[in-house]
Computed example of a mutant assay.
Amino acid sequence: MPDFAPEFCDVAVDGHVMTITLNRPERRNALHTDANHELGAVFDAFERNPELWIAVITGAGDKAFCAGADLVTAPSGGRPPVPESGFAGLVSRFNRRKPVIAAVNGMAMGGGFETALASDIVIAADTASFGLTEPRVGLAALGGGIQRVVEELGPKRAHALLLTGRKITAQDAHAMGIVAEVVPAGDLMATARRWADEIMECSPASIAATKAVVQSFDGHSVEHSMKDMFHLPEVRSLLTGPDAREGPTAFAQKRKPNWANPA
């Protein structure tokens, strides 16, 4: 848990899972300067806490996950509109060691879609919708949306979204491979928790190593990545750590493994 009381989101911890609920339903959970910086601090606390293994991010209400940047509320405090970790404290948070699941409960527009794209797994309610709509208000998807949509879809399909500001349904996003599962709205959070529980059956050290290899693979060949990955600290930590011994031992003894907390 963060060491302060969040104002613009609700934070709940259940076991090793932290759930962060964007809580500005009167603004369709659009984020202003203070909300972005608060979320940056919340995700900082999540990354620091070895007892927290997975984060789930969702939105309050049934209308919106996040409508993007709040274009109405004036900035306060003379701070930049987002922290170094980016919109929602997430989109520029590179080299994350822990998984983030986006449970998209409604519209995810602009920065809201970028927040989902920056997550590791996206689960969507069947009423959810997505769009990088910034060009329709004279802006552009400069929070990683352009790059991540191209990475996910390839340039031709990405251009079809990026150059039109088109909105797509949860079913469309699932067909494109952006969304892992579409479920009835009432089942969304239970489904996100099911995915979190499935991840937690795996070693946290293995998850950290896997994420590190995925991130280091960007822009490199398979051959380069396979040679380079053994220099990654997360991979070295996995191979020399207790989970690499506990996993085979538990398998041989036909019991569930007792994974070590991540460092």
Rank of each mutant, 00 (worst) to 15 (best):
D10H: 15
A30K: 03
P6R: 14
P135Q: 11
R48S: 15
R79P: 03
V214S: 07
R79T: 05
M200S: 15
S129H: 04
P242A: 10
F94N: 12
R236K: 13
N261K: 07
G111S: 10
H16K: 11
M109F: 12
E198D: 15
D70E: 11
R93P: 05
G138K: 03
G89A: 04
I20Y: 14
A212R: 11
A192S: 07
T133Q: 08
I207G: 00
P248N: 14
A180R: 11
A12Y: 09
G112M: 08
D228E: 13
R27P: 00
L90M: 07
A250E: 14
I101S: 12
R27G: 02
G89T: 02
A205T: 01
E181Y: 13
F113P: 03
G77D: 12
H224N: 03
H220K: 14
N49V: 01
L31K: 08
R148V: 10
P135F: 09
F46M: 04
D3K: 15
I54A: 08
Q147E: 15
C9E: 10
K211S: 06
T240A: 11
T169K: 13
T133N: 08
A190K: 03
F251H: 05
M189N: 01
V13G: 10
T19F: 13
D34P: 01
E7Y: 15
T21D: 06
D187L: 04
F87R: 08
R93Y: 13
Q253W: 15
P135T: 09
G247M: 06
T127N: 15
S225I: 07
R136M: 10
T210Q: 06
D44Y: 04
M189A: 00
V137T: 08
R245G: 00
R27A: 13
E26A: 13
T249M: 11
F4Y: 10
